[in-house]
Nucleic acid binder design. Structure first.
Lengths: 196, 196
DNA sequence: CTACACTTGTGAAGAATTTCACAAGCCCTC
DNA sequence: GAGGGCTTGTGAAATTCTTCACAAGTGTAG
């Protein structure tokens, strides 16, 4: 989050940012900002604030964003297809190198400079290209089975859009985006907003 | 999360679930489960566990899910269009009643039983149908302006897919889904996994 | 009806996180 | 180069969250 705002500030030409300024942008407190950043090192200059570009570089290095990450998308349904063309990924250094599906009707359909590939090709492709990250956009009832396959193939980080809780071994990182659950959180907020 | 798993258990025909069982499913601890649930009331039976169906009903009421929520989707790009057809929403009681865009090339295009509508129609539609929830899937640089418009129209809860931090007044709930940021979290995990 | 095996609900203890508050440091001005 | 206005980095305090541990129920079996 800090990185995002710092890039905004850099784009606007600011050379330094105080913890106060960052806190206002991020909706936290100055003390929180300072504690968070100090966890990774001492990046600020007293009296001045944090040097924007320098801090950006540090954060990008900490996050491991100084390289491009190849990513595969598994599932070429509506969501998978939308993600495959999502510019936000490439902008942030994530290069979608392949889209996979098991539906013969979808396999072979053109995508990017190539075409949608059969899920059977996932393992060899992943190994050949050293891909470590996958985005999962398959129906919930196949999700676990597909994850197992992906991990077998060498995937070590997964962003899961399927509305299913997945089990992965400890060396694999997993993040889930559950849109319906987010909506339910909003419904809760709405039903309780009137009586605070 | 508890609701999700309880529904699974109900579908499998289980009548009761212990905090231990729920904890295993959710990846937390029995004590956590009990504390969480006890915040809203005393739902369990000592010696037995929690009555599954009864707890489901309670949670649905707490979350405000006993009604269907009408939802509008703003932005008919790739992501917006995918969300408009996303079955997961309807399954969970969120009925997409309209899709809006400001691009004349998209406005009028068929969608569902109707068609994509002009953003100018948002305010009257929202008021007429009493819609309180919106999903935002527009480019980041228009997001704030569109949110302001939506709030003006009467929207009080927003699920934001645009990679932008939005400012909303206190009576409006906002949740953001930032896919690139999730990927960056995974990149961090990957770069630090090897040296624990 | 009693003994027993379970499981909840919850104060209290423990751990983690956030906030406070201030010494130390930096820059600018005079 | 001394003084003053800012701002960081960080121990300590305050707060919040999680875990522990056990009394109090509940159902079952004999």
């Amino acid at each position: 989050m800090y990185l995002r705002y710092l890039e905004d500030l850099a784009a606007r030409g600011l050379a330094t940012a105080s913890s106060d300024a960052l806190a206002n942008l991020c909706g936290t407190t100055p003390a929180q900002v300072r504690k968070d950043l100090s966890f990774f090192g001492s990046f600020g200059k007293r009296g001045l604030g944090y040097p924007v570009q320098e801090l950006i570089d540090h954060l990008r290095e900490i996050l491991g964003l100084q390289q491009d990450w190849p990513v595969v998308i598994i599932g070429a349904g509506k969501i998978g297809a939308a993600l495959a063309d999502y510019r936000g990924f490439l902008q942030r250094g994530f290069r979608v190198v392949g889209v996979y599906d098991n539906d013969p009707a979808k396999v072979g359909r053109p995508w990017g400079g190539s075409h949608i590939r059969d899920i059977a090709a996932l393992a060899p492709d992943v190994r050949a290209q050293g891909v470590q990250m996958a985005v999962l956009a398959v129906p919930a009832d196949h999700a676990q089975q597909v994850v197992d396959l992906a991990i077998q193939a060498g995937i070590r980080a997964i962003l899961n859009f399927a509305p299913a809780q997945l089990a992965v071994p400890p060396h694999v990182s997993l993040k889930a985006v559950n849109m319906a659950m987010e909506m339910e959180g909003l419904a809760f907020a709405l039903t309780h907003a009137d009586a605070p």
